[in-house]
Design a protein around this nucleic acid. Structure first.
Length: 346
DNA sequence: AACTCGGGGGA
DNA sequence: TCCCCAGAGTT
């Protein structure tokens, strides 16, 4: 029996019961795939349910506002996914009559849909034999075939995609793709893979050459930037604070936060009030101005470590348009801000 | 080809 | 700590 068939046999006996596996509805499959990009299944699940409840079909999503979508997406990270989700929903609903493209060639044109996601949707919904190569697939193939090409190099991306395309079942590409991914996730795990019970161990190059821990090979880059954030948490006597939306490129685009003053190093009271951004807000000086957390809160992102201080600014009237305390939780905010709001209790 | 974009879980 | 997660878009 060939690899594809054996893999699918393993899958049918071992697959998890996941909500998006009960349907071939392109809308639901697309939604699940976007949510699951770079996201663990268990983290994505509740979001999948929330979105389906709020937006049962592509038209209801297309008619939502960006803030609604971002609020539902809050906490999941990579927020461009949420903005592209809305953009593509509108495109499908208003330009394509509510019908998703039914092949890889056209699916990949959708914003937020790359080669992996287009292949997943095309195979699952339309039985098109396109290999969906995600992080799990890289790992399985690298170990099984002993491939040492870095998976995140352009050569590696091509090589693994071609190999997966050779292996794919033309009869059942939907189950093949999901099987390979599931196998990587549950059996051929990144650390401590279950080689004892692996049906492919006898032919696995990595297993037989004792290279399990060395494969797959990945080029590592990554330089982490340290930044110093100072949030001005205004508290007015009539129960309002100030929130601003992040615009332009960078982290948390479209999300809300308190007025932010970024300093080149950790700020003290003395040098913070000298900052131009603070001066703008303090044209009428606050009655009270104190530091909420003496020790900076370190919020770690993939490429940045944010050393954050929250400064409480009590005042009679706000220096800008205010938001009522009760309304604060309606805005989509980064986890860093959400954590503060939960703790501080405005 | 390299960089950027979140947050959380497991070892 | 470090690595990785059902990757995609931009520079």
């Amino acid at each position: 029996m060939n690899f594809a068939k054996r893999l699918i046999v393993w899958y049918l006996e071992n697959k998890r019961d996941l909500p998006w596996r009960a349907t071939k509805d392109p809308y639901k499959v697309w939604l699940s795939e976007i949510i699951l990009q770079q996201t663990r299944v268990e983290q994505g699940k509740p979001y999948y349910f929330k979105f389906l409840q709020a937006f049962p079909n592509v038209f209801s999503l297309a008619n939502a506002s960006e803030e609604e979508v971002l609020k539902l997406w809050q906490g999941l990270g990579y927020y461009s996914r949420a903005r592209n989700l809305l953009y593509t929903a509108q495109h499908v609903a208003f330009n394509l009559g509510g019908e998703f493209p039914n092949n890889h060639k056209n699916l990949v044109k959708l914003k937020g849909v790359g080669d992996y996601t287009a292949s997943a949707i095309a195979s699952i919904c339309f039985d098109e034999a396109q290999a969906a190569v995600d992080g799990n697939v890289y790992r399985v193939l690298a170990r099984l075939f002993g491939i040492e090409t870095p998976t995140n190099s352009s050569a590696g991306i091509k090589q693994f995609r071609n190999l997966a395309q050779e292996l794919i079942s033309k009869d059942d590409p939907a189950n093949f793709n999901q099987a390979l991914i599931e196998f990587g996730s549950e059996q051929c795990k990144p650390r401590n893979p279950l080689c004892n019970t692996c049906p492919f161990s006898s032919e696995c190059v990595a297993y037989n050459q004792n290279k399990i821990a060395q494969l797959p090979v990945k080029l590592k880059k990554l330089k982490v930037r340290k930044r110093h954030f100072n949030y001005l948490v205004f508290v007015s006597e009539n129960g309002e604070t100030i929130m601003e939306q992040r615009r332009g490129k960078g982290i948390w685009e479209g999300l809300y936060e308190f007025p932010l003053v970024e300093t080149p190093a950790e700020a003290s009271v003395e040098n913070l009030v000298m900052e131009a951004g603070v001066q703008d807000y303090f044209s009428n000086s606050p009655k009270e101005f104190y530091l909420y957390n003496e020790i900076p809160i370190v919020h770690k992102l993939t490429h940045q470590h944010l050393y954050t201080k929250f400064w409480i600014c009590s005042c009679e009237t706000l220096p800008a348009q205010g938001v009522r305390f009760e309304e604060v939780n309606k805005y989509p905010v980064p986890v860093l801000i959400e954590n503060f709001i939960d703790t501080f209790d405005l």
